[in-house]
Amino acid sequence: MYIMSTKQPMSTASHEPVIDARELHKSFGNVEAVKSLSFSVEAGEVLGLLGPNGAGKTTTIKMLTTLTQIDGGQAAIGGFDVSTQPDVVRQMIGVAGQSAAVDEKLTARENLNLFGRLYKIPRAERQRRTEELIERFDLGDFADRPSSTYSGGERRRLDVVAALVANPPALFLDEPTTGLDPRSRAELWDTVRSLATEGTAIVLSTQYLEEADRLADKILLIDHGEVVAQGTPDALKANLDRNVLEIHLELESGVGDAQELLASEENAVADVEARRIDIHVGNDADRSLALLRRLQDGGISILKFQLREPTLDDVFLSLTGSPSTEIEESTK
């Protein structure tokens, strides 16, 4: 049950959600950035906020972290209302990514010390914590250089670590791996998983399907400020219960011909540049064979084909009716 109280202590032992959003709504002028978004995140859970640019991910995170006003609905962190008790909520959250930066002129050590001071962590404890974070997240090599000199990966790592200074029970990561090389991304993924294991409730926004699939316990697929689908990554994929027949053609010109031959198939999606056609065929092997034969008889030269489990890309496609270019690009 959702209880709103001004003095309710936070408890991670029970299954009270740490982060609780109820019908959040936000408009900028005439643009409805977020329409009625509800979700909750328990301690140790990772919620993946997945969607293309402009889906409302950053706005949602900003509302939950007191960075922008909530126009409608309610949000609570650890039982404290975000709109009416922002000062209390700020003691329980850490924010990283697009929404909040670090000081570029300060070194990593100075930044962590600065934020520790502002969280009112006593000096000795603060210094111990700073060193611990530098050690644990491997910031040592650049901890004493101004952060303006960092590589993208180093910078993102400091961003995330800066959100951890006070061990916040609720952590918000706004596209933390955008622009990172694969190795830095993998490292960040490890970090997120281990923080969740330690009991932190995490909201992570991402455009990367793979990222949400790997990290999130549950996913909220959003587009134009609305939830398109939600559930565990597996449940989302199982919802489709249809395998995908992926056909790669030899010639780009063959794609158009193939499309004509497959005009009767509602679920066929063609990508001309990739010379690829995806068709949801379910578990019907005969149907796959029939489709392939139809193409072959039509004189289309097939390079290779495979029958695969649906990816979140497919989920997105089947639910929103349009592929998200950002997502496709990001998974390449």
Partner: peptide, 12 residues
């Protein structure tokens, strides 16, 4: 995971 080994946060 519900293991709670998270170090203490400053008092709220």
């Amino acid at each position: 995971t519900t293991t709670t080994v998270r170090p203490a946060s400053p008092p709220v």
